[in-house]
Design a protein around this nucleic acid. Structure first.
Lengths: 228, 228
DNA sequence: CTGTTTTGTGAAGAAATCGTTACAGCGAGG
DNA sequence: CCTCGCTGTAACGATTTCTTCACAAAACAG
């Protein structure tokens, strides 16, 4: 059985989360501020942490950074809970190293899906460090720097986030919907070519490495694994 | 056929929703206030409830809480309809255990998509992992990849969905109607050879493994279990 | 064995998706 | 107030993919 640590100061919400997660068969622990969250994480070593961004005592982002610094807790995946308008950019840009994030108010369904997805994944793959490399492409999430064959390339914020999201989910197809939600923060959109346009821009800037981004017709895009 | 209960006091909206849902092939029931909604839910046990937040008589949140308390209705998913500005911030759906929520004014399309998503999930194909294997055939839904004896084969969107559906329901015959509904999203169709054509293409691309797809004359197609 | 129904299949027109370019709005920084 | 860079949208082909249709093949019933 897997354990989920919930770090959230609104008691109601924390309880609800715990309720739903337990209904799905997870064991849960709750901590109501940043410090306690950190302590709890270190002592019980949960399989996943749901971390509120706005916390009394110690901000969620700080907690997350600290977790990622320590050997013991480094590999525990973190899903950030953010209110709309809070500095999602930082979380997404991944100066913080969270696996995923969800914007409040969110639906039970969505959160549970993400929890499941993250847990399923973390079973196999090691969670990566601050620098991710795919073939000739290397992206440093802390510095917001991308190099291809050692040459640094300038990307805009949106481009970087898009690229990062694709790389982070290496090999897995991301639908336009998902990308719009995770990169752009749109909650619901019908039919836009925005993603396509940005992919084109990415590919152009990436030169040859642009071919790493593969179109999956009818579904979305994915970053090619370099193994071949 | 699945039933959706609509609990909404604005008659116009309720009718509009009912109309669209029926067009999509669902049966609908309408209740115009909280009390009646609760009664209806208990007597007809719908597969899904669309629940307005602001209801005369009994607030939507209360209705939802009560539903979740009772054994019989506990598992019925609820989608909350909330007006903008209503205390969504309190994560309306959450405190009360709703599966999802939609903010008014919403597009019909959006609502329908959510309804489908929720129902699909609760109708529960066994929540399979990302990779399914049958004999020499292996399909990875996350990567959108199919391999036969280790060799990757390219499938188009529809082909992939069709194959996935057949594999998901291993050994069970799927009628053309069902396939058209689940793969193509068509609701009412008469006599089309589209499915046949696609099955042919699947078989061709699959080579020897194509024999795994069996024709059940007069009924439809099924994916053979590999034991023999 | 024969007639009838159902399924397989190839080709061609119809439709959908995607890549790309151009452009206008917006905001930051001078 | 102006300029410049970033973004999202629209538009237009170019392809790819889907659907339909016609006919062949196979299964079935009597």
């Amino acid at each position: 059985m897997q354990t989920v640590l919930i770090v959230e100061d609104e008691q109601d919400l924390a309880e609800l989360l715990a309720f739903h997660l337990e209904k799905e068969g997870y064991r849960t622990e709750v901590a109501c501020d940043g410090i306690k969250g950190l302590e709890a994480a270190r002592s019980i070593l949960p399989d996943l942490i749901l971390l509120d961004l706005m916390l009394p005592g110690l901000l969620g982002t700080e907690v997350c950074k600290l977790l990622k610094k320590s050997e013991a807790t480094q590999r525990i995946p973190v899903i950030m809970l953010t209110a709309k308008g809070e500095e999602i950019d930082k979380v997404v840009g991944f100066e913080v190293g969270a696996e995923d994030y969800v914007v409040k108010p969110f639906s039970t369904r969505e959160l549970l899906l993400r929890v499941k997805a993250v847990l399923r994944r973390s079973a196999g793959e090691p969670s990566e460090g601050p620098v991710i490399t795919v073939g000739p492409l290397s992206i440093d999430t802390e510095r917001h720097q991308v190099t291809i064959n050692g040459v640094e390339i300038g990307f805009t914020t949106t481009e970087f986030k898009l690229l990062h999201t694709l790389v982070k989910r290496l090999g897995r197809v991301q639908s336009r919907d998902v990308l719009l939600r995770d990169v752009w923060g749109y909650n619901f959109v019908e039919d836009t070519r925005t993603v396509d346009t940005h992919v084109t821009r990415l590919r152009t800037k990436m030169g040859e490495a642009g071919e790493l981004i593969k179109t999956v017709r009818g579904f979305g895009y994915k970053m090619e694994t370099d193994q071949r």
